[in-house]
Design a protein around this nucleic acid. Structure first.
Lengths: 327, 327
DNA sequence: CCGAAAATTGTGAGCGTTCACAATTGCATC
DNA sequence: GATGCAATTGTGAACGCTCACAATTTTCGG
């Protein structure tokens, strides 16, 4: 900066003024400084800036497995929105889901001087760890349930599950079976409850269900068991990958989809439309959720405290894996 | 830090010494300082540290679409390895693939004070933009081809394509068709050349091929055309998503897989084993590639200049989408 | 053409840390 | 008991920037 000042024959302060386009600097001076900046290809040192102002303009994202479509898309949404809002994004991925790991990741980010943190880790154990934070940082969580202490952006899982179930019921199915996500996941729980509630409202006793682990493999294995039960005409699966596995095991068992069994997934991953058969599913707009998260967090940072939790509505996408039940 | 010094009745310098466990500090003093640090829950300000040392211990990752399985896994590998090496990771995603966008992302990261940058953007246009960097930063690219000017970590695409093709040939197929990736992608090009070379070596004239865009949709559309050609008995598809689309269109056209047509994909995404039928494919270890990248970059940063490019070997995974050709 | 307000520019200090020294202490040696 | 050397601790300056204020110049009503 001193070099620029020298070249433009002004003080370093004036350079700083030009950089922040403060109003009280003469046109000529500004032009001279700007020229010097360009000539020297000067770029302000953000670290120094952050040191003195106390604002790093950096956000942290803690996540568990960014390999999955959902978290990856959310991260993308966050990054894009952050860039738009003038923030940069630092990531810290969790190796395991215990409290020390979560606290460690957050501490790491704080040490880096982030101004706020977004947590993408929808496991109950992860959310619980958030309640034991010593240092107060602005923090927003994705899909962390309606907890009082942490602001949250979430897709309305329960509504999504309900509309999946209702869709199947509307098609004439007498009952809807369910393959759930892992018990530790809030989303899994909410989808179970949306499914159960819808069935009960229709006067139907929810059949037993099994927990998968989100993977196609687990859907496949659970499917092998379900395939033996010839009462089943409709299954709501808690995510598209497990639905894929289910599709495969039913196919192997010689059951025709959707003629014999209708299936609804959840997420609408890009591949879902090309499964055999194309999967009816519930679309979640992960990227939008990421953007909302960011807006919430920036609000928290810049205006102070409060902000209402945000709910993103999911949407039923009907394809060929569901059809009317003919007795 | 001053507070800690006061509480421990030493100078700030001594606190700094304890923090960096320099050898020449008395046991008692060290204990006193450590106690003070704990009592005040003091954490050094990394920004200040970075400002004075010039080392931010931060790396940047530029990527185009972290929503895809490959880049997402690579990013995960990078982050984990970075954490292990004491670096943190900042991300910048490209909105589009032109040079200004790439240069902007890099500039943004540099402004943040990153010590090195990893680029995950295997498009030719992206790689080309890297050659026009003004500021010299340690930089490593993933899958950027054997370019002289940028160190690269890559999976041996050509070898992977060759082993896919050879596998099909070994099964007795007289020819192997190909669905390629988008022309702008180096990986797509290398897979084409691996495929062509293998065919030619076997004395076979490579049939015409089509470019898809990696998506299941494009595989589906190309498949609809291929389905009409009854000469085809084997197809090597440049990625698993397009293979999924192909599977679907062939299925719709009533062609049986693998009885009538054998198919090999590329990537081995987690879902590939549960396609109908389970997909024979070439596994790439993206996470490992990410780790290697990081090692390369840290080497570049810490030791100075050189370091050989790294090749990661892909691996053929045989499942049920391929079978011996019976004339 | 004077004085005051406005516009423009410059100066000193400090953000939290490390570096390069300088200063002090302890302890064994002669 | 003086001498020297290692071990330990402290001091000033600097990293690149912004803040608060002071100093200077310009502008303009009367």
């Amino acid at each position: 900066m001193a070099d620029v000042a020298k070249l433009a024959q002004v003080s370093y302060q004036t350079v700083s003024r030009v950089l922040h386009d403060s109003p009280n600097v003469h046109r000529d001076t500004r032009d001279r400084v700007l020229a010097a900046i360009r000539q020297l290809d000067y770029r302000p040192n953000l670290m120094a800036q952050a040191l003195v102002t106390g604002h790093s303009k950096t956000l942290g994202v803690v996540s568990f497995d960014t390999t999955l479509y959902g978290p990856a898309s959310t991260l993308l949404g966050i990054e894009q929105a952050a860039h738009g809002a003038g923030y940069s994004v630092s990531i810290a991925s969790l190796q395991s889901l215990n409290r020390p790991s979560m606290l460690g990741a957050i501490a790491r980010l704080q040490g880096q001087g982030v101004e706020g943190i977004i947590v993408i880790a929808p496991q109950k154990s992860a959310v619980e760890a958030l309640l034991h934070l010593s240092h107060r940082v602005p923090l927003v969580a994705v899909e962390a349930g309606p907890d009082e202490s942490v602001p949250v952006v979430a897709v309305d899982q329960s509504a999504g599950a309900a509309s999946a179930t209702r869709h199947l019921l509307d098609l004439g199915h007498r009952n809807v079976w369910h393959i759930a996500g892992p018990p530790d996941f809030l989303e899994a729980e909410l989808r179970i409850s949306g499914w159960k509630t819808t069935l009960k409202k229709a006067g139907i006793q929810p059949p037993p269900f099994t927990h998968g682990d989100w993977s196609a493999r687990s859907g496949y294995e659970i499917g092998q068991r379900l395939a033996k039960n010839h009462e089943i005409t409709a299954v709501f699966v808690a995510n598209d990958q497990m639905a894929l596995g289910l599709l495969r095991s039913l196919h192997e068992a010689g059951r025709e989809i959707p003629k014999e069994i209708s299936i609804v997934g959840f997420d609408d991953i890009p591949e879902a439309a090309y499964f055999t058969p194309p999967l009816t599913t519930i679309r979640q707009d992960f990227t939008e959720a990421g953007r909302r998260c960011l807006r919430l967090l920036v609000g928290l940072i810049e205006t102070g405290e409060p902000s209402a939790n945000v709910m993103v509505a999911p949407e039923l996408v009907v394809r060929s894996s569901t059809t009317a039940f003919r007795r």
